[in-house]
Simulated assay, not measured.
Amino acid sequence: MITSKNSPVLTIVVPCYNEEEVLPETVKRLEHILEQLMSNKLVSEHSTVLFVDDGSKDRTWELIEQYHLTHHLITGLKLSRNSGHQSALLSGLMTAKEYSDCVISIDADLQDDVEAIREFIIKYHEGYDVVYGIRRTRTTDTMFKRGTAQGFYKLMTKLGVQIRYNHADYRLMSKRTLDHLAQYREVNLFLRGIVPLIGFRSTEVYYDRHERFAGESKYPLKKMLSFALDGITSFSIKPIRLVTVLGFILFLVSVIATIYGLISKFMGNTVSGWTSLIISVWFIGGVQLLAIGLIGEYIGKIYREVKHRPLYIIESFLSADDKEVVTPRAASSHEAELQHSQV
């Protein structure tokens, strides 16, 4: 058994968006696992759960405030607007790292097995700075979702992105890992790709993923596709290189077609086929539009990066030391500004 002296301060960061239906059960389960860890001296008694309200339109923040007043382990962070899952998660991580030895991120829907948190902490005590939560199987997914997810991971790997197969954002990170994460100042966030770039000693914990406890998924197909595209274009320039290669191939095809046309003319067979002409026009036109769209994606990301807008703005912070709502002086996406904004 680990002594109290070596018990780290743990913060469990939970990004929330319209989670009023599942929040009561999430609070109950996370409090229970945290109390178990405290009783076993695996984590400090100063450990907490930090719920991050990402501009919810329902009673999510109201419930967080209530639980903060009635449950000593519950803290809260409210963003001024909906900033997206990755930005909300980052805001919680950057806030928690100021008073925590390690931080675990988990979604509020209870699909990730909270019992795996104990294994995360054990691995942390063994000297690991990053512990990835990995799904054992995808039996709970539909055939379409399972196929597209596996295809995404394989594609990212082939593009050279360091990403853990079947890992989402359920992970533990030490304070020094979070300190280095704060140095990544990019606007186009894809934490699943950024965290492995930091390095440090890492390991994996396998768990079984459950069905969503209540409410509706916040990641419909449109958002999933957008998230996948962000991940691909944020970490690899290979797609745009493929456009160059494709352009070169089409150039060679056009040269061959030109030679064929000249030979046909000299041989007196100058009647060209309507089908081949239409197919060529549509194919080349489609490739051009695809190439322009892909280039536009990269230009759009450059545009967002150079503006240096904050990823999120913190409206309120309910700390463990105070039962009143505390409003920071300012808040931003970057580490230096965050240090001035925390209470």
Results as ranks from 00 to 15, higher is better:
Val271Ala: 14
Cys16Thr: 06
Gln162Lys: 13
Glu31Thr: 03
Gly76Asp: 03
Ala320Met: 02
Cys16Asp: 02
Arg192His: 07
Leu197Asp: 01
Arg176Gln: 09
Met224Gln: 06
Ser254Val: 02
Leu262Gly: 10
Leu34Gly: 05
Val22Ser: 04
Lys222His: 11
Val49His: 03
Glu98Leu: 10
Ile106His: 01
Phe248Trp: 02
Asp109Glu: 05
Arg138Tyr: 12
Gln162Asn: 12
Tyr17Val: 06
Asn6Thr: 02
Pro310Asp: 12
Pro328Asp: 04
Ile240Ala: 00
Phe283Ser: 14
Val205Ala: 03
Ala182Gly: 12
Ser280Tyr: 15
Gly151Phe: 10
Ser333Lys: 14
Glu216Arg: 05
Leu159Gln: 09
Leu338Pro: 07
Thr142Glu: 06
Ile313Trp: 12
Glu186Lys: 10
Ile240Ser: 03
Glu62Cys: 14
Gly151Ile: 02
Tyr67Gly: 08
Glu20Asn: 04
Trp274Thr: 13
Leu79Ser: 10
Tyr165Arg: 15
Gly199Trp: 05
Ala336Arg: 13
Arg304His: 11
Asp321His: 10
Glu35Ile: 09
Gly127His: 01
Lys223Asn: 04
Ile33Val: 01
Tyr303Glu: 07
Ser217Cys: 05
Arg201Ser: 09
Gly285Tyr: 12
Ile64Gln: 00
Ala214Gln: 05
Ser202Leu: 01
Thr137Ser: 04
Glu115Ser: 05
Gly268Ala: 13
His340Arg: 15
Tyr165Phe: 15
Val131Lys: 03
Leu63Asp: 11
Ser332Gln: 13
Glu324Ser: 13
Val22Cys: 08
Tyr207Trp: 09
Asp208Ala: 10
Gly286Pro: 07
Gln342Arg: 15
Ile279Met: 14
Ala228Ile: 08
Thr275Cys: 13
Val271Phe: 14
Leu311Trp: 12
Ser44Ala: 10
Tyr17Pro: 07
Pro196Cys: 03
Asp107Gln: 01
Leu73Arg: 01
Leu221Asn: 02
Leu189Arg: 08
Lys154Gly: 00
Tyr67Pro: 02
Leu242Ile: 08
Arg164Cys: 11
Gly247His: 02
Gln339Phe: 14
His32Arg: 11
Leu318Gly: 04
Ile263Asp: 09
Val306Pro: 00
Asn82Trp: 13
Arg241Gly: 04
Leu289His: 00
Lys323Ile: 09
Leu197Glu: 08
Asp322Glu: 03
Lys218Ser: 08
